[in-house]
């Protein structure tokens, strides 16, 4: 420590992180199993990502009276106004349309937020990434967890609507849980790969945002695929966003999702994770430079 005539004051302080022993070498030795191990370790730090997720939710709604229920309130206003308008336009009974629209919108908010916030999963945490050997999968988990928290707040809107119009609650409703798990498994790789791509190419975030705007109308959220006939089914079947929404929406409405949806999402998870791990194997060490 400094003495007498030295001008340097106390040492800097800050945060640190403790890790287990590690070996690094240049690229070639970094195998897929290393990346896999890192990712699994990151997901395992659940105390850390759950805290990060909650902290972000608290930060956003700090000193507001209703807190995260603000998203629920704005969603409720949207669903009620649009729901009544569209049910009048298409001459559908609000009692069937409102539960459909609200459950669809709640799921859509989750799916689209995973994509837009996945884009900033790493950029937004540059101070952590450049100061600590922070596990990247943990940061992606925090994004997913935060949006699951928001989903549970939004569900209040659906529950109220469902109680008022009397939606059928049966065994299929329990499929919400595996549905959310499938959504989270897919959401996680989406956050990781978008986080990486957006850290390197800042334009991708804008592309994602604008594509999502169009997708909201192309995905059967406002309209049911039956309304378009056969074409609607094809449009839905090839649309991953539809399956991501449907896997939670159908159980909420008391129906079982089609097997196609489960198959599609399992396949999506398999392909997505393979690509993500392969990309992370080559590029994850650059993220600290990119953010």
């Amino acid at each position: 420590m400094p003495e007498g005539n030295e001008t340097t004051p106390a040492l800097v302080v800050g945060t640190s992180i403790i890790r287990d022993s590690a070996t690094w070498s240049s690229g070639d030795v970094d195998t897929l199993s290393c990346v896999f191990h890192d990712t699994v370790t990151g997901i395992g730090h659940w105390t850390l990502w759950s805290r990060l997720g909650w902290a972000e939710v608290r930060r956003r709604y700090r000193r507001t009276v209703v807190g995260p229920f603000w998203t629920s309130l704005s969603l409720a206003v949207f669903v009620l106004t649009m729901g009544l308008l569209y049910s009048a336009l298409w001459k559908i009974s609000p009692a069937t349309y409102l539960p459909f629209l609200s459950s669809g919108m709640i799921c859509w908010v989750l799916v689209s937020a995973l994509m837009t916030e996945g884009c900033v999963a790493f950029i937004g945490n540059s101070s952590l990434i450049t100061q600590l050997p922070f596990n990247l999968a943990t940061l992606a988990c925090a994004v997913v967890w935060r949006n699951v928290i928001v989903l549970f707040h939004n569900l209040a809107v659906y529950i109220v609507i469902a109680l008022v119009v009397g939606v059928d609650v049966n065994l299929n409703t329990l499929l919400v849980i595996p549905g959310l798990l499938l959504l989270a498994v897919n959401g996680l790789w989406v956050c990781m790969i978008l986080g990486l791509l957006c850290a390197r190419y800042r334009d991708i975030q804008q592309v994602v945002t604008s594509l999502l705007q169009v997708s909201l109308f192309l995905t059967p959220i406002f309209w049911a695929q039956d309304q378009l006939g056969g074409r609607g089914h094809i449009l839905a079947a090839v649309n991953p966003l539809f399956h991501l929404v449907e896997v939670v929406r159908a159980p909420l409405l008391g129906k079982a999702p089609e097997l196609l949806t489960y198959g599609f999402l399992l396949g999506l998870a398999l392909v997505g994770w393979t690509i993500t791990l392969a990309v992370f194997r080559r590029h994850r060490h650059y993220i600290a430079f990119w953010v």
């Binding site: 690094w24 070498s25 240049s26 990434i129 100061q131 600290a288």
Partner: peptide, 24 residues
């Protein structure tokens, strides 16, 4: 472990704690 060496080999045995910037 924040930056990864571009070339060469680094072996660390033990838990690392780093105190760099003020409270990230």
């Amino acid at each position: 472990g924040i930056y990864h060496p571009t070339v060469g080999r680094l072996v660390v045995n033990g838990r690392i704690s780093s105190l760099f910037s003020i409270s990230p």
